[in-house]
């Protein structure tokens, strides 16, 4: 049997307020196979965003192991994690996080600056990513000239432009109206089906979760 793309083994995470320990995740274990589209759901404070942060390597667990694409990221230094993220992770957040002074093209080009690519290669990749998300005609637009749904599509283009191993989305439709949210979910679903992208998405929205292959619920830091 093929090894899962993501292996979460006994992962726990606690935060500290002064000397008070606040456990957020307790002994979580599960696998995510390659090509999966997983929705993480649960009430506020259940630890789903924390779990996503741990899988993406932007935070580190207090205990346990996290093996992603064959590498145990729980044991990596900050520098190693930064390099690893640039190669394996595409992130999409609720508020898009686009740089307002850059055009859609430049925002999508940003992660490619960490690669040794020629300008022509970068252009080709950016154009491909923006065409996939349906914004091939909006490349020179600044974020302020785009709708919320279009901004999120630019953010998705930016997340996929490096062809990451794993696409992670935290409430990607949380700031969008119903129509735009539907478009974003359709796009994510297409990325999963047509391009075989493994996607982990945190959401509150049951309609968004319907597009996923599987749903895992978290409650009080444990898998329900």
């Amino acid at each position: 049997m093929a090894q899962a793309l993501v292996q979460v083994r006994g992962v726990s995470k606690s935060y500290y307020r002064d000397s008070l320990e606040i456990p957020v995740l307790r002994n979580i274990s599960f696998d995510i196979p390659e090509g999966e589209f997983l929705a993480l759901m649960g009430p506020s404070g259940s630890g789903k965003t924390t779990l996503l942060n741990l899988i993406s390597g932007i935070d580190q667990p207090s205990g346990g192991d996290l093996v992603v694409a064959g590498e145990n990221i729980a044991r990596m230094s900050e520098g190693q994690l930064a390099k690893w993220r640039s190669q394996h992770i595409g992130l999409v957040f609720q508020f898009y996080n686009l740089l307002p002074v850059l055009t859609a093209f430049e925002n999508v080009e940003l992660p490619l600056l960490l690669y040794k690519l020629s300008k022509a290669d970068r252009r080709k990749r950016v154009e491909t990513a923006l065409t996939i998300v349906g914004l091939g005609d909006r490349m020179d637009h600044y974020p302020r000239q785009l709708s919320g749904g279009q901004e999120q599509r630019v953010a998705i283009a930016r997340a996929i432009v490096t062809d990451p191993t794993l696409l992670l989305a935290d409430e990607p439709t949380g700031d969008l109206d119903k129509v735009s949210a539907e478009e974003i979910m359709t796009l994510l679903s297409r990325l999963n089906k047509e391009f075989n992208k493994t996607i982990v998405m945190v959401t509150h929205d049951p309609r968004a979760a319907e597009k996923a292959h599987s749903i895992r619920n978290l409650d009080k830091g444990e898998l329900a």
């Binding site: 932007i58 993220r85 640039s86 957040f93 996080n97």
Partner: peptide, 13 residues
């Protein structure tokens, strides 16, 4: 702050 954080999340050091 959030922009710098996001750039770090992409792998910028």
């Amino acid at each position: 702050t959030s922009e710098y954080a996001f750039m770090k999340s992409m792998g910028f050091q």
